[in-house]
Amino acid sequence: MTRRSDRIFKVISVIISLIVVILCLFPLLWMTLAGFKPEREVMAVPLKLLPSEWTLQSFDKLFNDKNNDYFQALKATLYVASLSSILVLIVNSMAAYAFARLEFTFKKLLWRIIILTMYIPGMTILISSFVLVSQMGILDTYTVLIVPGLASAYEIFFFRQFFLNMPMALEESALIDGASRFRIYLTIFLPNAKSPLVIIGIGAFLRYWNSFVWPVMTISDKSKYQVMQIIRSFRNAYSSKFGVVMAASTIAAIIPITLFLFFQKYIIRGIVLSGIK
């Protein structure tokens, strides 16, 4: 009897799952379709489900219209997000190694201070951070976009957990061979930390790629505009031309989605493993 109810439950699960998947993906599909529709069909009444002809009109406007800086913003954001994710990995994994594997004076105190920063909400320090960077004179630079978000207590913690569990034998034999601690971190710990590197790296890329408030506050130089800033400005500039806005959004969404799909195994396993704690 439980067998049968089990099967019924499984069938129901499959049906519900399909509905949920459609609800999750349909908005993205609708956005993409709108990007390929001729402008008059994007907001057509009655509805046009599929474009009568697939056209690159909106994308063309996005990249070739002299009045908008979309392509430049795409390049600037790609630059900021890729460079930042590499720096995030270096900065946080290095600190994590020291906390996981080395003994030093004031270690406990320094660790407490780092953990303390986890409890400070972003919105509380947003305005004073802006005041600080404007006093430092780094508004409108790549530095202001990249540096303030590089270190994160959560990410140090994540790496540390992983490093704590690495076997000591690895380190021991390298030490006997005369390797320095930094060398051990570089040549033994990092190459063996593929999964946290992927998880944190992708997370950092998304954080920078999707960031909105901070660029809006700190960047007014159009050559350094970030993608989300541009999309916001499009909302007003092309308020009657949703095709262009949807084309811009499609490209802004495709990059993180591709990255995620490429590394989905690591990311989903990462959630499944870290959720257990």
Binding site: I90, V91, N92, M94, A95, Y97, A98, F99, L102, E103, F104, K107, L110, I113, I114, T117, V147, P148, L150, A151, A153, I156, S180, R181, F182, Y185
Partner: peptide, 13 residues
């Protein structure tokens, strides 16, 4: 070595 390794993260935080 330990201090140098935590320095970037700590300074930024």
């Amino acid at each position: 070595t330990a201090y140098l390794m935590i320095l970037p993260a700590f300074a930024i935080l």
